[in-house]
Design a protein around this nucleic acid. Structure first.
Lengths: 188, 188, 188, 188
DNA sequence: GATGAATGAGAATTCATTCAT
DNA sequence: TATGAATGAATTCTCATTCAT
């Protein structure tokens, strides 16, 4: 029982590293297997296909992101503070999780999303609820929670990409400004 | 002479459609050839490899984008007006060029960019110069033009993605606000 | 004890259905296991290998066929009556056992027979004895019982195949004619 | 041009030998390629899939069979003579083409036929027309040409199988008797 | 330049079988 | 006996690239 979880997790973890470094198509199942220390068949025991494995990995990342985003976000905060906190949380998580960040970017701009089936969804319901609530109380633009959050997350993503590109971290003051801007972009 | 250009363009155009719809790896050279009405070998007369073809396509897109972005941008404009105009230009071009937009997104988040060789660069020198000038005169954050423009473009990209996702276009007023926010994000 | 028999039979029964519908190679052990409601390992407790399982299934079918063929066949019957009865018995059994018929046909024309090991044999000794006796008393062609019976059974098989193809059953009179013809084909 | 035909034919010829000896599933494409002296990809250049290759092979065999069956069959012959000739022609061809015979038997009793799509058809229209004409003039049983010919061919097949099993050829006299019986089985 | 048949390394996936529990 | 996770060799098929015409 413990062993299974451990194997499955090991595979996901290896896949994350390989894909974030080389992309989906430089990550053959055979290599994923050997690097994970399991047989090819074992991967197929845990995931129906390579596609399914990638989706599962995305889901796992998305879950972690959502949890991280909500850290310290509660009803006592003002709307601006609430979203600025989320902005900074997301920025922080992306910055500390370069592999996940790279993987998520690749996944979201690949035909995996728009192509087959629907969008697997990025933020969890609790996160989306914060956006919904904002719209409901008239603080945010009247758009679907999915759209608002995508815009919001896109700005964070652009910022992190820029930092990585520049190879230089923005200061806390600069980040606070951008977070404020992020809120401004979605508020009414 | 005319024939060659026409063939090369036809190939690029077909590749754009195929890749934007199916991704790099659902776009085999053989199918690209047949859909373009040429032989496989012909593609290799015009492009050294599939990689080279994709880079050429990106370069062609980037060139068009840069030209579009600079429409109506001149020294007479204030800094805010200048960048807001560029923001709206870019938004407008992306909106009118869904295939190119999809292709560019895929290209930029794939290992093509960070992986092999250098970043092919997105904006042309003239566009980058506008950012450089902004930094020089103390109006923009002290970051490299490439970084600033990436952040700027990322916001537009997020906005368009959001609109596509939502399936609803933002109003001119909303866009103006976001453009203003875009400038705010990079200004000092 | 009862449980074991029941399990073994359930496996054979499921295998019969799967193979007759999809062929040997569309009948993986794992699916056979799940459809039979047992674990893969359990199949290997009852059968040494997939090959052995298939041979066992063939043997089981052959046994049933032989028993069915001899219904109402005794020494009092004339030779013609004897073989015509056998012909009709076989026809009747095949018609009522479509899955077995399909499986037997596949088995017999596959490399299972001529390939590995010996022919598992189709008719039981008692059935073959009837043919041997016919040869002995000079009523049948001087051929081995196996050959004669194969010719005989082949004609029934062809007839059933034809009926299945046509989707229309032959009348009792037509069958009687063909049965008579079957005897004529092997008699001296 | 000449080369292509030759390659395609070589592949079919090798496939015939391999499949007749080892069955569909002991005939991997890689081995088929090497034994044919071509690359794997070349097979796929000529045939869409292994399935398609097998179907093409069957079609090629069926075409040859049909041509052989009609040798010496013309309107001047009586009905009995006509069908007896066809019986003997088919018997002769099967006897001289052991590989094709084995392949055809395997193909026809595999899920290739009843499974996917329709029956690819065995006899050519000209052959079927002979049966149709027989029905039309009231000499043959009122069954579809496909069914009648299947019964007819099935008897020949059974006979050849028996001879192969026995390892002894039937005499010309015996064959003539069986041919006569074959006609008797389908006549009205 | 144009063609497209040929190549073959490489990729995803399958599945009979094993074995520790 | 029963289980089913794990194995990994084997299989089908793909596709970027080459080259003789």
């Amino acid at each position: 029982m413990k062993k299974q979880v451990s194997r499955r997790d090991k595979i996901l973890q290896t896949a994350l590293r390989m894909i974030s470094e080389g992309g989906f198509h430089n990550s053959p199942m055979s290599e994923l297997a050997s690097r994970s220390g399991v047989a090819v068949g074992t991967i197929y025991h845990h995931f129906e296909s390579k596609d399914a494995l990638i989706r599962a990995l995305y889901a796992a990342c998305a879950e972690q992101v959502s949890a991280a985003v909500l850290q310290g976000v509660d009803e006592k905060l003002s709307n601006s503070k609430r979203f600025e906190t989320m902005w900074l949380n997301l920025h922080s998580w992306y910055s500390r999780h370069a592999l996940e960040f790279s993987f998520i970017r690749q996944f979201e701009s690949s035909p995996f999303v728009s192509g087959k089936g629907h969008d697997p969804g990025f933020f969890s319901q609790p996160v989306l609820d914060v956006f919904r609530e904002g719209v409901k109380v008239g603080k945010l633009r009247k758009l679907k929670a999915g759209a608002l959050s995508a815009l919001f997350a896109g700005m964070v993503s652009s910022t992190v990409t820029m930092e990585l590109r520049e190879g230089k971290k923005l200061s806390g003051k600069e980040l606070a400004e951008l977070a404020s801007m992020g809120y401004a972009a979605i508020r009414r």
